[in-house]
C-alpha cells in the first residue's frame, strides 16, 4: 500500500531523513520509533507530500509527488496537535473537511459517534479538551474511510487517561484492515497498535523487527528506576521510553 524508496530529506545541509526505504502492504501497521529529531515526523510529512524530497514514495500505486492530491484522498492524517479554527462549531469543521475530501455525510453525529464524541456537534472547538480535539481530528481522518492512516505522535499532548482511551480507539481501527504508519515515543502505544517497529536514528533505519520482538533500550533514568524497584517502568501507560 505504501512504498518508500531511498527517501532523502534535508533541511539546509542537515539530513533529516537519509536513504529510508520501507514497504507497507495493505493492512500492515508500522511504528516509527526513535528519539526527537530521528526523522519520524519528517517521513510522515514526506508521505503526505508536505515536503519536497529525494527518492520516491507511492501510495496505492500512485506517486505522491506527481499525484499528491489523489494520494491524499487515500490517507487519513492525525497530527500531534491541531490548531483547528477555534470559533468553528464541531459540525462545521466536520462538514468543511468532508467537502474537501468529497465525502457525502450521512450525519455529523454518526461521524462523531465513531470516535466517541456523540452529541458534541454544536460545541465550539475552543470548548473541547485536548483529547476531544484529537478525537475530532481522528473523525476527520476517517471521513471517506481511507485505507491508510498516518499518525504523528497523536497522544503526545494527552494526559494518561486521554492517552489510554485514544490508544484503545486506535487499536480497534488497526484491526480493521487499514494500513497504519505512525510515529510514537511510547512503548505501550507501539505494542498495542503496531505489527512491526522501524527504529530511526539520525534519519536512517537502524533496526526493524516484529513488535513481539521489540525491546527498546531504556533511557538511563528509567533503567535506574527499574533497578530500584519500579516493576512497571517500561509498561505503564505514562512511561515514555526512548532509544
Amino acid at each position: 500500500m505504501i512504498t518508500i524508496e531511498r527517501l532523502v530529506k534535508r533541511f539546509g545541509r542537515t539530513p533529516a531523513v537519509d536513504g529510508v526505504s520501507m514497504r507497507l502492504p495493505a493492512g500492515d501497521s508500522v511504528a516509527l520509533w526513535g528519539s526527537n529529531g530521528a526523522g519520524k515526523s519528517t517521513v510522515i510529512r514526506c508521505v503526505l507530500g508536505l515536503f519536497r524530497y529525494g527518492g520516491s514514495i507511492s501510495i496505492g500505486g500512485l506517486d505522491v509527488r506527481r499525484d499528491g492530491k489523489r494520494t491524499r484522498r487515500l490517507v487519513g492524517y492525525v497530527p500531534q496537535e491541531i490548531g483547528f479554527y477555534d470559533d468553528l462549531r464541531v459540525a462545521e469543521a466536520v462538514r468543511f473537511f468532508a467537502r474537501l475530501k468529497a465525502v457525502a455525510l450521512p450525519s455529523v453525529d454518526e461521524v462523531l459517534a465513531r470516535v466517541g464524541l456523540p452529541g458534541q456537534e454544536r460545541k465550539r472547538i475552543r470548548e473541547l479538551s485536548g483529547g476531544m480535539k484529537q478525537r475530532l481530528a481522528l473523525a476527520v481522518a476517517l471521513l471517506g474511510d481511507p485505507p491508510v492512516l498516518l499518525l504523528d505522535e497523536v497522544t503526545a499532548s494527552l494526559d494518561a487517561f486521554g492517552r489510554e482511551e485514544f490508544v484503545a480507539l486506535l487499536e480497534r481501527l488497526s484491526g480493521d484492515g487499514r494500513t497504519m504508519l505512525f510515529a510514537s515515543h511510547r512503548v505501550d502505544e507501539v505494542k498495542a497498535l503496531a505489527r512491526r517497529v522501524i527504529t530511526l536514528e539520525a534519519g536512517r533505519i537502524v533496526d526493524e523487527q516484529p513488535v513481539h520482538d521489540f525491546r527498546p533500550a531504556l533511557r538511563r533514568e528509567h533503567a535506574i528506576a527499574g533497578a530500584i524497584g519500579s516493576p512497571r517502568a517500561d509498561s505503564s501507560p505514562a512511561t515514555e521510553v526512548r532509544p
Binding site: 461521524v111 466517541g116 471517506g144 474511510d145 480497534r172 494500513t179
Partner: peptide, 25 residues
C-alpha cells in the same frame, strides 16, 4: 461507540465496483 459497528461513509464519486468503502483492504 464501537468502530466496527459504524456505517462506513460513502465517497461521492466512487465507481460502481467500489461503491462500498468496506471493500477488502
Amino acid at each position: 461507540t464501537a468502530i466496527h459497528s459504524a456505517t462506513p461513509l460513502r465517497e461521492i464519486d466512487v465507481t460502481d465496483k467500489d461503491s462500498s468503502p468496506a471493500h477488502d483492504r
